[in-house]
């Protein structure tokens, strides 16, 4: 309707639109506040002294900022009888997560490459079985896995935990890479074959360089899963190889006398920092990578 006599109505509707937009922003802002509230409480509490926590308001800002709780959480808090804070366990988690993420991503890329580009008889069945692996509740596999780790002689060790995480990550990493590679025209592989390249050459020279977006997605996914894992960590570790999630639980549960909320909060934030870091650094690739398959021309 390009009729000029309708201008007032049009401006009215523009005002209406503006109001709607504001309403939307306010609503979204409220939700954001709601979600950020626990983080706010965690951070402020971790910066307060125990006295202040006991006497003050839960959501009040700290009157006096102190990093004592952070220091204790990092290197002095007790996990059971040991009082070294989360530091040793934080390193355990790093030693577990980095190789496990790297290996499961690489193997997933290779699996996805085979399932998508080197079709063989039964490829679909194998892929379906791997997908099925994504949906098995991990509680179900605890006992058989414990037995296998024992047979392999790596029970209770960090390599054992890496092994477990690689195995249970493969379903997802394969799925990610398969879906990404399936959108790449088969002619690319054919051209490389005619050019004389073999299976691994094509993978290294042609497919891996194409895969940055999906590698980022997979790494974020796997890192979050493995870093945040508690069940495998608590089941397949022993003193000295426990990941940070298990240590956090022990710190919170093994308080004697006064409950040190500020230390608990600081330890929890420390345990969550690496995943937060990964999201902040690579988050935009995450969204991009998730949609890359669908918009690729």
């Amino acid at each position: 309707m390009a009729d000029t006599s309708f201008v007032p109505a049009a401006s009215q509707s523009r005002k209406g639109k503006l109001a709607l937009r504001w309403l939307l922003y306010i609503l979204l802002g409220l939700f954001a506040l709601f979600y950020l509230m626990p983080l706010f409480v965690m951070i402020t509490t971790s910066l307060k002294s125990l006295d202040e926590i006991r006497t003050g308001d839960l959501i009040a800002l700290p009157r006096e900022v102190t990093f004592d709780a952070w220091r204790t959480a990092w290197s002095g808090a007790c996990t059971g009888i040991q009082c070294e804070g989360v530091r040793p366990f934080f390193w355990n988690s790093i030693l577990i997560a980095i190789p496990a993420v790297a290996i499961s991503t690489l193997l997933g890329a290779m699996n996805g490459y085979v399932v998508a580009q080197w079709r063989f008889r039964g490829a679909n069945i194998i892929f379906s079985l791997m997908l099925f692996g994504c949906f098995i509740p991990f509680q179900v596999v605890l006992l058989p896995m414990a037995r296998i780790l024992g047979m392999m002689g790596i029970a209770g060790t960090i390599p054992g935990l890496i092994f477990v995480h690689v195995i249970y990550g493969l379903g997802f990493t394969t799925l990610f890479f398969r879906n990404y590679y399936v959108s790449i025209p088969a002619e690319l592989t054919k051209a490389a074959k005619v050019d004389g390249a073999g299976f691994f050459r094509i993978f290294w020279s042609i497919f891996l360089p194409l895969s940055l977006p999906i590698i980022v997605v997979t790494v974020i996914w796997q890192f979050t899963q493995i870093w945040n894992d508690f069940l495998f960590g608590v089941s397949f570790s022993q003193a000295g190889t426990q990941p940070v999630t298990v240590a956090l639980n022990n710190i919170v549960n093994s308080t004697t006398g006064v409950k040190e909320y500020n230390v608990d909060m600081a330890a929890a934030i420390i345990a969550a920092l690496p995943t937060l870091f990964v999201y902040v650094v690579a988050g935009k690739y995450f969204v991009r990578g998730l949609t890359a398959g669908s918009v690729k021309g």
Binding site: P185, K190, K193, V194, D195
Partner: peptide, 21 residues
Amino acid sequence: VSPKDRDIAMVFQSYALYPTM
């Protein structure tokens, strides 16, 4: 015999150029 040893070269419909090179 595998494609690389047939002494052939091929041009594809989608060109199949290696995108990152």
